[in-house]
Simulated assay, not measured.
Amino acid sequence: MSNLVQFPGTPSDRALNDDSDRPHAEAFRDIESEVGDLDRMGEIATDLIMHCSATEDSSHNLELATFAVWQMSKMLKEFRKNYHKRYQGEEIAS
């Protein structure tokens, strides 16, 4: 009965308590707050860019938008680096 549905790439003799997916699952769990931060920074950047393009005298908003895009780029690079470290089982300093 346990072999009724065979998923591609899943050996039928694989144990249900196999921990081979644990590092990947933990890596995804650990990035929750970073994903939220990236999403929010993207919203801020988008909103600021939209407001900057709507008016001519919005140099302050343009500066903020430039900073937000720069910061988001920096955050994405760090995010990717940390994700790969977590996937490999390395500890990440909070």
Rank of each mutant, 00 (worst) to 15 (best):
L64P: 04
L64D: 00
N82C: 01
A54R: 08
S33D: 15
R29M: 13
E43V: 12
E56G: 04
L76H: 10
Y83F: 11
W70S: 15
K77R: 13
K85Y: 03
T46V: 08
E34H: 12
T46Y: 06
F28M: 15
L16W: 11
E34D: 15
V69R: 03
Q88I: 02
L38H: 07
G36E: 14
W70Q: 15
R22P: 05
R22I: 11
D18G: 03
N3E: 07
K77C: 08
R86P: 00
E90D: 05
E63F: 01
A45Q: 04
A45W: 00
R29C: 13
E34W: 10
F28P: 02
E63R: 01
V5T: 02
E78L: 12
Q88H: 09
R86E: 02
I49H: 00
D13S: 15
M72Y: 13
I44T: 12
M41G: 10
S20D: 08
V5W: 06
L38Q: 11
L4I: 11
D39P: 03
P23F: 05
F67Y: 09
L16N: 10
H51A: 14
I31T: 14
D19V: 13
R14G: 02
R86Y: 07
D47T: 06
A68W: 00
T66S: 07
P8A: 06
A25I: 15
R29P: 05
A45S: 06
M75Q: 11
D37I: 05
N82E: 04
S59H: 01
T10M: 13
L38F: 08
G9R: 05
V5L: 07
